[in-house]
Lab assay of single mutants.
Amino acid sequence: NKFNKEMRNAYWEILLLPNLNEQQKRAFIRSLYDDPSQSANLLAEAKKLNDAQA
């Protein structure tokens, strides 16, 4: 399933972002589970926040 693969990839990438705190990571991951079809958008948002907090 395409969404499962995308979601899994986004999950691990979000977990490994160094500048997000645990609460932020949990919020993004919760959103991933709520709507896996938004994986790419959520990952992009997480990366943007990660860069902003660098």
Rank of each mutant, 00 (worst) to 15 (best):
A10F: 02
Y33V: 05
P36D: 02
L15Y: 04
A54G: 11
P18G: 10
A52R: 08
S37I: 05
W12P: 00
R30P: 01
I14V: 04
E45T: 09
A46H: 00
N9H: 14
N19F: 11
I29V: 12
A40G: 06
L16N: 12
K25Q: 02
L43G: 05
F28D: 00
E13G: 15
A44I: 10
L20I: 11
F3Q: 15
E22Y: 11
N9R: 15
Q53G: 12
R30S: 13
R26E: 03
Q24L: 07
R30Q: 13
I29Q: 03
E13L: 11
K47P: 00
A52F: 10
P36K: 04
A10H: 03
S37Q: 11
K25W: 02
L17S: 11
A27E: 10
W12A: 05
P18N: 08
Q24I: 10
K48I: 09
A44K: 10
F3V: 15
R8L: 14
E6I: 03
Y11S: 03
E6H: 03
I14G: 01
L32A: 01
E6N: 02
N41G: 06
D35Y: 05
L49P: 00
L32M: 04
A44S: 11
A52Y: 11
Q53W: 11
A10L: 03
R26W: 08
Q23N: 07
Q24P: 01
M7W: 15
I14R: 00
D35A: 07
E6R: 01
S37D: 06
Q38N: 05
Q23W: 12
K5H: 02
F28R: 04
L43E: 06
E22M: 06
A40I: 14
L32T: 01
E22A: 12
Q23T: 10
A44V: 14
K25I: 07
Q38T: 13
D51P: 02
K5A: 02
L20K: 00
E6Y: 02
E13I: 15
N9F: 14
F28L: 12
K47T: 03
A40E: 07
L20N: 00
Y11Q: 03
L20D: 00
K48D: 08
L16M: 13
L15V: 10
K47Q: 07
N9E: 14
Q23R: 08
M7S: 04
A46Q: 00
Q53F: 08
Q38E: 13
A54H: 12
L16K: 11
L17Y: 05
M7H: 01
I29Y: 04
E22D: 10
W12E: 04
F28V: 06
E13S: 12
E45M: 12
A54T: 12
K2I: 15
N19G: 09
A44H: 14
Q23A: 15
L43M: 06
N41A: 09
Q53V: 10
N21L: 12
E6V: 02
W12I: 05
R30Y: 13
Q38A: 12
K47D: 03
F3I: 15
E6P: 01
S37F: 06
I29L: 06
E45I: 12
L15H: 13
Q23V: 10
S31I: 04
M7R: 00
K47A: 04
E22W: 07
M7I: 07
L17K: 05
K47Y: 05
Q53Y: 10
N1F: 00
R8H: 12
K48E: 07
A46T: 02
Q23K: 09
D51V: 12
L17F: 06
K5I: 01
P18D: 05
K25G: 01
N4V: 02
S39E: 00
A54E: 07
L20M: 06
L20F: 02
N1T: 03
Y33W: 12
E6Q: 04
A52H: 07
I14F: 02
Y33K: 04
N21Q: 14
K48V: 10
Q53L: 14
K48F: 10
M7K: 00
D34I: 14
A52P: 09
E45K: 07
A54W: 05
S37R: 06
N9L: 15
Q38M: 06
N19M: 13
D51A: 06
A10K: 02
Q38V: 04
Q38W: 10
Y11E: 11
M7Y: 02
Q23G: 10
N4P: 15
A44P: 03
L42P: 03
S37N: 05
L15W: 02
N19E: 12
S37Y: 09
S31T: 07
N1E: 13
F3K: 15
R8Y: 15
L49I: 08
F28Y: 10
R30M: 05
E45S: 08
L16G: 15
A40Q: 10
A40K: 10
I29N: 02
A52E: 10
Q24H: 06
D34T: 05
K25D: 00
K48P: 01
N4S: 04
A27K: 11
W12Y: 08
P36M: 03
L32G: 01
E45N: 13
F28G: 01
Q24S: 07
F3L: 15
A44Y: 13
E22F: 13
Q38H: 07
L16H: 15
Q38Y: 09
A46R: 00
N41H: 11
E45D: 12
L15F: 11
L43T: 12
M7L: 10
K47L: 04
S31E: 14
R8T: 05
E22K: 13
D51F: 10
A10E: 01
D35R: 07
A27Q: 12
F3A: 15
L42G: 03
E13Y: 13
I29S: 03
K48M: 12
